[in-house]
């Protein structure tokens, strides 16, 4: 029995057709699996390894390499604050510090209600609109501390997603 939804399994089938070597599909498979499950559970790792005919260790190597792949649950809203050069110059660090205060967690922390998690990240490709924050797959740009509070509030009241 697969632990993934039928839709995801269909997606995997299609992915696997795209590459000459099955293990090339590992990164997208992991990413989609993480989207569905929230994080990469031991069962998910086992199943993906088996589908690719790779060892679980090989899957762990890839997960360890990419910081966007995680083996621990994140919050429902994963707040990723960029503090790389452009954002840094335009107040990224303050944004990050403020997030810590507001959410009451440190880097990689999850709020007790499981709603938010926080992560300091490298450039997310939104330099032109720095400082930027990514929440799940949504971007929030040209932020100030005040704007950030509004963003977080929206998520908290369930207005978004």
């Amino acid at each position: 029995m697969s632990i993934f939804s039928p839709q995801l399994n269909t997606r995997f089938d299609e992915l696997l057709k795209r590459y000459p070597v099955p293990r090339s599909a590992m990164v997208p498979m992991l990413l989609y699996a993480q989207d569905e499950l929230g994080y990469l559970t031991p069962e998910a790792i086992r199943e993906i390894a088996a589908r690719l005919d790779e060892s679980e260790l090989a899957v762990h190597e890839v997960i360890g390499y990419y910081s966007m792949l995680r083996t621990k649950p994140a919050g429902r809203f994963h707040v990723q604050v960029c503090t790389n050069i452009s954002c840094l110059l335009r107040g990224g660090e303050e944004i990050f510090e403020h997030c810590k205060q507001r959410l009451g967690v440190n880097n990689h922390g999850v709020t007790p209600d499981g709603l938010f998690s926080l992560e300091e990240v490298e450039c997310i490709g939104a330099c032109s609109w720095a400082p930027a924050v990514q929440v799940n797959y949504d971007f929030h740009e040209n932020l100030t501390v005040a704007k950030l509070d509004q963003v977080l509030d929206k998520y908290r009241t369930g207005g978004v997603q």
């Binding site: 060892s55 679980e56 260790l57 090989a58 762990h60 190597e61 360890g64 390499y65 910081s67």
Partner: peptide, 20 residues
């Protein structure tokens, strides 16, 4: 046997065993 691998990346790279 393929029991050893490399975890993480860059300066934090570390040798990891196959069962965590």
């Amino acid at each position: 046997v393929w029991a050893l691998g490399v975890g993480n990346r860059g300066v934090s790279s570390v040798i990891i065993p196959n069962k965590q």
